[in-house]
């Protein structure tokens, strides 16, 4: 039976997330091509901290966190170092989500591309640019759709039985 349940690569619960929580981890028994990148728990923690800042969410989907981290790390060999740099800069300067991009553009242009990458991954479910771009989430977990999940479904998923769209949507927006 289990053959039907098999999912490629990454476990349900978010292996890295769990590992990072345990911390002190230096070797991840993970058969992904991003294994090397993934071993840097500090980088992953930095990634999670920044993800929380950019999304304003503390309950980010762990499986998605793994996928995003591994994908970004795979596409950028300096990702681990750069994400740590960014995290340190944000911490040192008490940056908020409101002033983050402007301050980075002015003061830390080397890592100024990272917030957009994280936002694009979490909110739009896409990692990478151009031909390397890849969809890693297209569902109510994709944060732009999570933001409106009480009203809209991600296009191609049904909103509901026929005529459901006639009902009055929330007006307090």
């Amino acid at each position: 039976m289990s053959q039907y349940k098999e999912k490629a690569g990454i476990s349900r619960r978010g292996f890295l997330t769990a590992s990072a929580a345990l911390s002190g981890l230096t070797l991840v028994p993970f058969a992904s091509q991003a294994q090397a990148a993934a071993t840097d728990a500090k980088a992953f923690n930095a990634f999670m901290a920044l993800s929380q800042l950019i999304t304003a969410k503390s309950d980010l989907n762990p499986a998605l966190a793994d996928t995003i981290y591994l994908s970004l790390a795979q596409q950028d060999e300096d990702f681990a170092a750069r994400i740590k740099t960014l995290n340190a800069f944000v911490a040192d300067h008490n940056l908020t989500s409101a002033n983050l991009q402007a301050r980075l553009d002015a003061e830390q242009p080397d890592v100024a591309d990272l917030p957009r990458k994280l936002a694009k991954a979490w909110f739009q479910g896409i990692v990478g640019e151009g031909k390397a771009a890849k969809t890693i989430s297209y569902s109510d977990n994709t944060l732009m759709y999570a933001a409106v999940a009480d009203v809209l479904a991600p296009p191609s998923y049904a909103l509901g039985a026929y005529g459901i769209w006639s009902s009055k949507p929330p007006q307090d927006v």
């Binding site: 999912k7 490629a8 990454i10 349900r12 499986a63 996928t67 989430s137």
Partner: peptide, 10 residues
């Protein structure tokens, strides 16, 4: 299914 995006891994 609590991991609905897993389908995108392949």
């Amino acid at each position: 299914n609590d991991n609905i995006d897993s389908v995108f891994l392949e």
